[in-house]
Amino acid sequence: MIVGEQKPVAEIKSIIEPYKKILILGCNTCVKTCFAGGEDEVAVLGSALRLAFKKQGENKHIEEFTIERQCEDEFIHEAASRIAENDAVLSLACGAGVQAIAKRFANVPVLPGVNTTFIGIQESQGVFTEECCGCGNCDLAIFGGICPVTRCAKKLLNGPCGGSQNGKCEVNPDTDCAWQLIIDRLTRLGQLDNLRAYIPPKNWRTGLAGGPRKLVREDHII
């Protein structure tokens, strides 16, 4: 999923300050799962903002609405009439959701309420970890299903650096060394020989280095 974290209320408050009527728009897919922008978070944030503005004697109209996914037109339409009635949209979706809404509604300011952090998983309740950086050229088959491009702080492709000790990364002792995990797993799978081969420099053209990416599926274009 796309993992995100809600911005601090004080920052959100200053972002929406210029507007009288604001729609807080939640997204019930990824950011709901990571407790950043689903229906529940929209309700809690709405209450907090109403209270904060009331305390300083400002009367703002704050409306709440949540759709299934802000990155798909099919669901965005459901919010159209509410968006039209407000001065601005505070989107609690990931950056893709914020931009999808902005693309559809040319005359309404769309503001971010969430910091999009990474593509990851919920490792345990309330703990999310980054697993994929969307490089566009997946080599997980070589690395036993553990991505060094994302999870090694130096993106090393040919083995651990000299800072790997006791299974931990030198950059952060709370982070597992991805290379230790890769070696342990390939050992269990009997595939350690994968790591004897030289891995050539990565082709970053499929990643963000090649500019914003676009995927065209001719077979789905009607």
Binding site: K154, K155, L156, L157, N158, C161, Y198, I199, P201, K202
Partner: peptide, 9 residues
């Protein structure tokens, strides 16, 4: 940081 290539490369 860059880390376009690694030390092996």
């Amino acid at each position: 940081n860059v880390f376009d290539i690694d030390s092996m490369n």
